[in-house]
Simulated assay, not measured.
Amino acid sequence: MTKHNIYKMSVASVYPLYVNKSERKGRTKTEVDEILRWLTGYSQEELEIELEKQTDFETFFANAPQMNPLRSLIKGVVCGVRVEDIEEPTMKEIRYLDKLIDELAKGKAMDKILRK
């Protein structure tokens, strides 16, 4: 099976889009970073290093220090696909991130986004 093109895209190339989407809706880069740290277990410094290194999505998620076990509580539709129905692990992680950024941009409280 061929891998999806997004797997080889750098997280850094999409990161500004996440930030812009959030800022257009009155949210902050700090909140985007908090979501990324919550999901992956990277520290802020480690996250910045991965962005600087232009790490691709596949490697970013594969090398994440501690994927948050609460991410399985993320439900809903992203790009017309139910997140909970995605079987391919890397694509599921990417869509979890997309869903969290969507929730941020829609004004959801951080406690709810981070499943507290």
Rank of each mutant, 00 (worst) to 15 (best):
M1Q: 09
T2N: 15
K3C: 02
H4F: 13
I6V: 11
Y7M: 07
K8R: 10
K8H: 10
K8Q: 14
M9A: 01
V11A: 02
A12F: 00
A12Y: 01
S13I: 10
Y15C: 00
Y15V: 00
Y15H: 06
P16Q: 00
Y18S: 07
V19K: 13
V19H: 11
N20E: 11
N20W: 06
K21H: 08
S22Q: 06
R24S: 13
R24D: 14
R24L: 15
K25P: 02
G26K: 00
T28C: 03
K29Y: 04
T30E: 15
E31V: 05
E31S: 05
E31Y: 09
V32R: 12
V32Q: 12
D33T: 01
E34P: 08
I35C: 04
L36N: 09
L36D: 03
L36H: 10
W38Q: 03
W38L: 04
T40Y: 00
T40D: 01
G41Y: 00
S43R: 15
S43K: 09
E45A: 15
E46M: 10
E46G: 10
L47A: 03
E48H: 11
E48C: 02
E48D: 14
I49D: 10
L51Y: 03
K53P: 06
K53M: 09
Q54F: 04
T55K: 01
D56K: 03
D56F: 01
F57Y: 06
E58A: 13
E58T: 08
T59E: 11
F60A: 12
F61E: 04
F61A: 08
A62L: 12
A64E: 04
A64Y: 03
P65E: 09
P65F: 01
Q66P: 03
M67Q: 01
M67N: 01
N68C: 00
N68S: 00
L70V: 08
R71N: 07
R71K: 15
R71G: 02
R71F: 12
R71S: 14
R71V: 07
L73A: 11
I74P: 11
K75C: 06
K75I: 05
G76F: 01
G76L: 03
V77R: 13
V77N: 12
V77L: 08
C79W: 07
V81F: 09
V81T: 13
R82K: 15
V83P: 09
V83Y: 05
D85A: 12
I86S: 06
E87F: 01
E87W: 04
E87I: 09
E88R: 14
P89A: 00
P89I: 02
T90G: 09
M91K: 13
M91R: 10
M91S: 14
K92P: 05
E93W: 07
E93P: 04
I94M: 06
I94K: 07
I94E: 07
I94T: 03
R95H: 11
Y96L: 03
Y96E: 13
L97I: 07
K99Q: 15
K99T: 05
L100K: 12
L100E: 12
D102K: 13
D102I: 06
D102Y: 03
E103I: 02
E103L: 07
L104S: 00
K106T: 08
K106Y: 08
G107F: 12
K108F: 12
K108H: 12
A109F: 03
M110I: 14
D111Y: 08
D111E: 14
D111H: 10
K112G: 04
I113S: 14
I113P: 13
I113D: 09
L114Q: 09
L114C: 10
R115A: 06
K116H: 13
K116E: 15
